[in-house]
């Protein structure tokens, strides 16, 4: 029995899985957090004793949390250095991506870190775009940079 499909190479057909674009609304709590971000404030939610970042619409026990401002400093918990973009092209300047923790909060945020010598435990603060450029997304923060206290150490 001839189980081979035939002579020669297999054919391929080009295609894609695309839409013109996706538009993601921020959600109910997210739109409050977005407004705060546009004002240069990072937020979290308070669930009883716990403070959780980034804010989410519900606490771990499924109850509703309260949105509160969370001020720094943000401490580097982990970081990585990225050399390629998402399509595999080399970046001109390698980018440091850091997991940033808050002393009083559970959870962490992920963002760019601009530091000469990134290290775990480094205390950082966000650098925002100018107010008129902000749109309430995480891109309103350009990057995190070492806080002054950190540079003293």
């Amino acid at each position: 029995m001839n189980r081979r499909g035939g002579r020669g190479e297999l054919l391929h057909v080009e295609g894609s899985m695309e839409a013109d674009k996706y538009v993601y609304p921020p959600g109910v709590l997210g739109s409050e957090a977005a407004k705060a971000l546009a004002e240069g404030k990072l937020t979290g939610i308070r669930c009883g004793e716990k403070l959780i970042v980034p804010p989410r619409p519900y606490c771990p026990d499924h109850s509703k949390g309260e949105l509160v401002e969370v001020r720094g400093p943000w401490i580097v918990e982990s970081f990585t250095i990225v050399y390629e973009d998402m399509y595999g092209n080399m970046l001109e300047t390698p980018q440091v991506i850091a997991v940033l923790r808050h002393e009083d909060a559970e959870g962490s945020i992920v963002h760019f870190l601009k530091a000469e010598k990134p290290r775990v435990g480094m205390r950082t603060r966000p650098v925002f775009k100018s107010p008129e450029e902000r749109n309430g997304t995480l891109g309103d923060i350009l990057y995190f940079e070492p806080a002054e206290q950190a540079s003293k150490k």
């Binding site: 993601y24 609304p25 959600g27 109910v28 709590l29 997210g30 739109s31 989410r56 619409p57 499924h62």
Partner: peptide, 15 residues
Amino acid sequence: RLLETPAELAWEAAS
């Protein structure tokens, strides 16, 4: 079109 995120929708219905 709802403002809620997918997780928020799930949470509202589940609650």
